[in-house]
Nucleic acid binder design. Sequence first.
DNA 1: CTCTTGACTGAGG
DNA 2: GCCTCAGCCAAGA
Length: 109
Amino acid sequence: MNESTTNFFQDVYEVVKLIPKGRVTSYGAIAGYLGSKGKSRMVGWAMHGASGLDVPAHRVLNSKGELTGKAHFGGDRMTRLLESEGVQVKNDKVQHFKKHFWDPSVELM
DNA sequence: CTCTTGACTGAGG
DNA sequence: GCCTCAGCCAAGA
């Protein structure tokens, strides 16, 4: 495995694991915290590979607070997980997104 | 090796 | 609020 690319994926997993219960963040926020925000798609791809790992990918949403990755969890699994953590989800979108938002570049400093 | 796709984002119309 | 475009880069066909 190449260190350049694989490290990014591992870093993403680590950051996602640090997301507190009942909090959510965005692909772009993680990408921006690690390197360039343009890598937001790679964060999404990292989540694709996070399936089966101990990574709360359901806490990672797009910039609008929508559950874009919900389809990859199978049905409403992602929605249920978020609601069970105290996050209100309506029409595949997180309510009070700004309130639940967890920014690694701020929280982790 | 080339081309397309995609769990994204911000800017512009 | 919706559509389009450009930038980002890995994986699959």
